[in-house]
Amino acid sequence: MARTTLFTFSLLLTILLGLLLTLSPAVSQPTLEALPKIRAGTPPHSVLGNIMGSNRQFMQGIKATDPGRQLTQAPHLIWLADPDPRISPEMVWERKAGGIYTVRNLANQLEPAAAAIDYGVRSLHGTILLITGNTDNQAIAQFNEGYEHLGTAIRRELNQLHPPLARLLATTGKSAEEMQKLLVRQVESNVDYQVSRALERYRDRVDSGRLVVAGGVIDLANHYGGGPGRLYLINLNGETEPGKIRQSSHVVRVPPEMRDYLGRRSAR
């Protein structure tokens, strides 16, 4: 009896050791699985390659012994814009024309960018502050849809859109076409509001003629019918009436073919 029990115990121990030896490689060696792709788009290595390649192209014709660029002149233009990647400086300024001082934040708001704008106006003595909104503005669309689920910093910035959009809050039951037209009016209202805040903040420089504050809309979605990317100047030192804007001495150098885009127009 004792011999049978010992044999049975030895057999079970042998089977158990065999199972452990069989399973141990799978336990000790991690399974190699493909990592899921986090998001669609251009991979980082391509972006970094483009960054360095662009700088190489920029540096063509510049010698290693050339002196560095000196900030000796005031920027011709201080530009406050939305960070939408579809917007580029070439839409409002030719590179060869001189310096452009660019500040961008969600929905082109003055207050969140006050320090940078103050520096451009009061320290660098810029003469034009151009504030541009854009149709199909994703920040204002997010404001309409609700943003309570977003991060603290984004909520804080979007919260500041309540004053300019208080009269034009989105309501339920609107068709897609109605919402599209509402968004255009919101963009225009926000530009007017930001211009008014700039006029309050820099009143001394505006009154002395050392600063002009202009507001415009870059029509990315071609809602006005002038082509996608067209700039419409809708506010000039607080003046919003198209006829008076066209009569201003500040626009005498605007090319004749561009005078049709001075002043706001109804979205299609």
Results as ranks from 00 to 15, higher is better:
Asp136Trp: 04
Pro85Ile: 07
Leu35Trp: 07
Ala97Ser: 15
Ala64Trp: 03
His76Trp: 00
Thr132Asp: 11
Leu130Tyr: 04
Leu106Lys: 01
Val47Lys: 12
Leu77Gln: 04
Gln142His: 08
Met52His: 11
Val92Cys: 04
Gly41Cys: 12
Glu111Trp: 06
Arg56Asn: 09
Leu77Ile: 07
Gly49Asp: 11
Gly41Ala: 10
Thr152Gln: 11
Arg95Val: 09
Gly41Ser: 09
Arg122Phe: 00
Pro67Cys: 01
Ala141Arg: 15
Asn137Gly: 10
His125Lys: 14
Met52Ile: 11
Leu80Lys: 02
Tyr119Val: 02
Ile38Met: 08
His149Asn: 14
Pro85Lys: 05
Gly133Val: 05
Leu48Phe: 15
Glu94Gly: 15
Gly98Gln: 02
Pro85Cys: 00
Leu77Glu: 03
Leu110Asn: 02
Glu33Lys: 14
Tyr101Gly: 02
Thr102Asn: 09
Ala107His: 05
Ser88Arg: 12
Gly99Thr: 04
Gln70Asn: 10
Leu80Asn: 02
Gly61Trp: 08
Pro36Ala: 10
Ile87Phe: 07
Asn50Asp: 13
Ile38Ala: 14
Arg69Phe: 07
Ile51Gly: 01
Glu145Gln: 15
Val47Leu: 15
His125Phe: 08
Gly49Trp: 04
His125Ser: 10
Lys37Gly: 01
Arg56Gln: 13
Val121Ile: 15
Ile131Leu: 09
Trp79Ala: 03
Asn50Glu: 14
Thr132Ser: 15
Asn134Ile: 03
Asn55Gly: 00
Asn55Phe: 12
Gln70Asp: 09
Leu129Thr: 06
Arg95Phe: 11
Leu71Asn: 10
Leu106Met: 13
Gln142Ser: 11
Arg69Glu: 08
Thr102Tyr: 00
Arg155Pro: 02
Asn105Lys: 05
Ala34Leu: 12
Asp136Tyr: 06
Ala107Phe: 05
Ile128Tyr: 06
Leu106Thr: 01
Glu94Tyr: 07
Ile51Lys: 01
Gly68Lys: 10
Pro44Lys: 10
Ala81Cys: 08
Met91Arg: 09
Ser46Cys: 06
Gln60Val: 13
Gly41Tyr: 11
Asp84Thr: 03
Pro75Lys: 03
Ile128Phe: 05
Ala97Val: 07
Asn108Phe: 07
Met52Gln: 12
Thr31Met: 10
Pro43His: 06
Thr127Tyr: 00
Leu150Tyr: 11
His149Gly: 07
Thr127Val: 05
